[in-house]
Amino acid sequence: MQLLYLLIEIIVKCVVVFAGLMIVVAYLTWFERKVLGHIQIRFGPNRCGPFGLLQPFSDAVKAFFKEDLVPERSDKVVFVMAPMISIIAAISIFAVIPFGNQFTIPGTEWVVKLRLADIDVGLLYIFGVASLGEFGIVLGGWSSGNKYGLTGSLRAAAQMISYEVALGITVVGVLILSQTLRLTEIVRLQEGGFWNWNIWYQPVAFVLYLICGLAEINRTPFDMPEAEAELACGFNIEYSSMKFALFFMAEYAHMVTMGALAVTLFLGGWQPIIPQLSFIPGIVWFCAKLFIFLFFFVWQRGTYPRLRYDQIMKFGWKILIPLALINLLITALIVSLKG
């Protein structure tokens, strides 16, 4: 019976997290357009429903009913597989994100932990699955048999490999402080008010994480793989209908994950700002902090222009990686001196 309850709990959690993530992704697209619109002094979507709130659904319906083209010159199997790889990886990363502490179901003694999997190598799992997700973008561009697509995916591969190195080294600083790869442990060590959050101990790592994270999810200053102006949309140029929508959803889901990981590593996860406010459930704090990052991701898209490709590579290898290494060395030195 215990086993059955456990199974039910796992399935319910999976469904809830999946549905929640999809809703967040859908409304993130709406939110982005709305904020970008106001930044550029226009309204953004306002036709479908009040404040354009039904826009994501109308987009979904439109994408669903569009003609699904597979180019003649494409590698058909890989072409169909690429968006699937992208979306599967983007969703399954979310399995290890702890979005709240635990609570007891009223009337029973059944404790529900607000995370899908609490594995010992949670942080490495995120990096592993994210690096698998990159295959989606790279293969998508290659398999479409289009020169713009190929250029986009070449840029994606080079850029992601470079920035993944810097991102990995950056995160090691936090690891040295918390001495664990388990995300719930990392959150628990930041307990007791905002002055205990890792952002104060690792400010350089925080800034580097945001920059590398933007490059990892191909957001605007680093959106080389799909630079509209020069590559006509890059890796997804030949994609239409739901396949394009899957790429789009994967990008936004990845963005949510990057934000959630930043909250977990640097802003104390589900912990409240000050201990006195702990009557507000952890999941509310988590979502509020996540919202800050999502707003930042959208805001900076409306602010910064796109960099040039060689500038991006130079910036990654000659500035970000040395900075991350110096940060790592100083952190290690201080931690070992303190004993």
Binding site: V121, L124, F127, L132, E134, V138, L139, L150, I161
Partner: peptide
């Protein structure tokens, strides 16, 4: 297991694909 995924399946095969695409 996870290092196998990060290093081999992620990074190294990505480099192989990168070279093949050229």
């Amino acid at each position: 297991a996870i290092i196998q995924v990060v290093v081999y399946a992620g990074a190294i095969v990505m480099l192989i694909v990168f070279v093949i695409m050229l």
